[in-house]
Simulated assay, not measured.
Amino acid sequence: MQETPASEVESVAKARPRRRWRRLVVVSVIMLLLFGLPWWTLVAAGTHWPTAVVVLGTVIIVGAMVALPTMMVFGHGRRHRDWAAVTGDVLLGAAWVFFVWSLLGQVLRLALFAFGVDDPARSRIVALSVLAVATTLLVWGYAEAMRVPRVKHVDVRIDRLGRGLDGLRVVMITDTHYGPIDRSRWSTRTIDRVNELDADVLCHVGDIADGSAEVREPQSRPLEHARARLARVYVTGNHEYIGEAQGWVDYMADIGWDTLHNRHIVVERDGDRLVIAGVDDATARGSGQAGHGANHQAALADADPNLPVLLLAHQPKQIDQAVAAGVDLQISGHTHGGQIWPFNFLVRLDQPVVHGLSRHGERTQLYTSRGTGFWGPPFRVFAPSEITVLTLRST
Rank of each mutant, 00 (worst) to 15 (best):
P69Q: 07
V381P: 05
D182P: 01
L128D: 02
V59F: 08
W40S: 01
R23M: 13
V43M: 10
L230W: 11
G338W: 02
A213P: 14
E196I: 01
M172S: 05
M65T: 06
R216W: 04
D175A: 05
D258I: 04
D258S: 14
V97H: 04
H314R: 11
V233S: 01
L42F: 02
L312Q: 05
H225D: 12
R81S: 06
L37A: 00
A84H: 03
H334G: 09
R150E: 15
E240W: 08
T236A: 08
L103Q: 00
S123E: 05
A313I: 06
A253R: 15
P352V: 12
L260Q: 10
T41H: 11
G376H: 10
T335I: 13
R18E: 07
A282N: 04
G361N: 07
F382L: 14
L310N: 03
Y367L: 03
I191F: 02
R163D: 12
A290I: 10
V12H: 09
A383M: 08
S212Q: 01
H264G: 06
D192S: 12
I319A: 03
G164Q: 05
Q297D: 15
Q318I: 05
V266H: 09
L366A: 01
P377K: 09
L103V: 14
G93F: 09
A324Y: 07
V266T: 15
I125D: 01
A245H: 03
S287Y: 09
I191Q: 01
L112C: 03
A231V: 10
E244F: 05
N262F: 12
E362N: 10
A322H: 10
T136I: 11
S358H: 14
A253P: 00
H334L: 13
Y142M: 05
A64Q: 03
H261I: 13
G46S: 08
V73W: 02
Q321F: 02
R163V: 02
L92N: 05
H264P: 03
M252K: 06
T4S: 03
Q297W: 10
G206I: 07
L32Q: 00
Y142T: 15
I60R: 00
Y178V: 01
V12D: 07
V62W: 03
G333D: 13
E3F: 03
Q330W: 13
D207V: 14
L202Q: 01
H80A: 03
S129P: 09
L161P: 04
V26A: 10
L357F: 08
L108V: 15
A199S: 04
P120Q: 08
